[in-house]
Design a protein around this nucleic acid. Structure first.
Lengths: 163, 163
DNA sequence: TATTGTTATACTCTATAACTATA
DNA sequence: TATAGTTATAGAGTATAACAATA
């Protein structure tokens, strides 16, 4: 549409910008994690909560696959999240050797609170952006998200697994 | 410019989209980390490499502050990164009680290799996006990055610390 | 026999507190 | 005395291997 100089130029720009912002956030985002109000949850535990929030209920083995973690690690992590009162383990109705893992009410409210505080931090950054770039960011990220989720569904492996 | 319905609507869209994509990547990106070719490096060690790549040389205490980690943790982590041959510890020229930490040649090439593989994974996703959204993503992220770095410079605290 | 989850053991990450050396 | 770094100890995250219970 607009004068494209080389066919891959805009792809490369998007790839570089993505990788750089991800690395920046890998340092900063983690730094803000443990300033939580109710109880500080480790980065690994937080990943468990994310998955449980999306796929609820889920058994232990499947959770491990989604996280890329060994069953024994997940089992121990659930011990602690259970002790914190964030996760509930109940026997599955379909098979007596499986568990049903789900967020407790406390887990749900912890996650909601964390998201509220993180979105407030993001708002501080995004408010400093020019309006046009802000709209571009929202449109670009929505499309990016669809593409990631599409890639994850297609093959059994997702984008990150290819890395 | 375009018909804005409510003043904060585009800000909220950008904030939500950002938070959601970050959470998605928090699970997926970490999953792909240890498929590295030369040697698998933990997520924490990788964060050290990022900082050393940007601010080189840096002393141990400052590195700890940037990471939000205690000096003892950083010291032990440097033991292992040193043993892996990724980081070099040398006495500072200015003060005999400080260290100068920097990436070794091997550390630099490891990081370059990891970035190449991760950018390839990102390219797979970004290639699936329509061209217009791809351009929007690149523009939006570049502006976002500037805003994050601006916020980090202004106050002594950055966006993530406010969370 | 294959699968789900747990336990045993070992190593890394993390923090607080005590320590050494330098300023 | 204050600061830079290390070491001691303890708890959390991770994996492999061995185990119990179920299908």
């Amino acid at each position: 549409m607009a004068g494209e100089t080389s066919p891959g130029a805009d792809r490369d720009a998007a790839v570089s910008a993505s990788r750089e912002v991800i690395e920046l956030l890998e340092v900063l985002w983690n730094k803000g994690r443990d300033m939580a109000s109710p109880a500080p949850v480790s980065s690994s535990q937080l990943r468990v909560l994310y998955v449980l929030d999306r796929d609820r209920p889920i058994n232990l083995r499947t959770l491990g696959e989604v996280l890329g973690a060994a069953p024994s690690s997940v089992s121990r992590m659930c011990d602690r999240l259970d002790a914190l009162g964030f996760v509930e383990r109940s026997p599955s109705s379909s098979s007596r050797r499986e568990l049903e893992l789900r967020l407790s009410a406390r887990g749900v409210s912890y996650l909601a609170d964390l998201r509220t505080r993180r979105e407030a931090a993001l708002l501080g950054v995004i408010s400093a952006m020019p309006s046009a770039e802000r709209a571009a960011l929202a449109a670009g990220l929505s499309s990016f998200r669809l593409a990631v989720e599409g890639a994850a569904s297609e093959g059994s492996d997702d984008a990150a697994e290819t890395a």
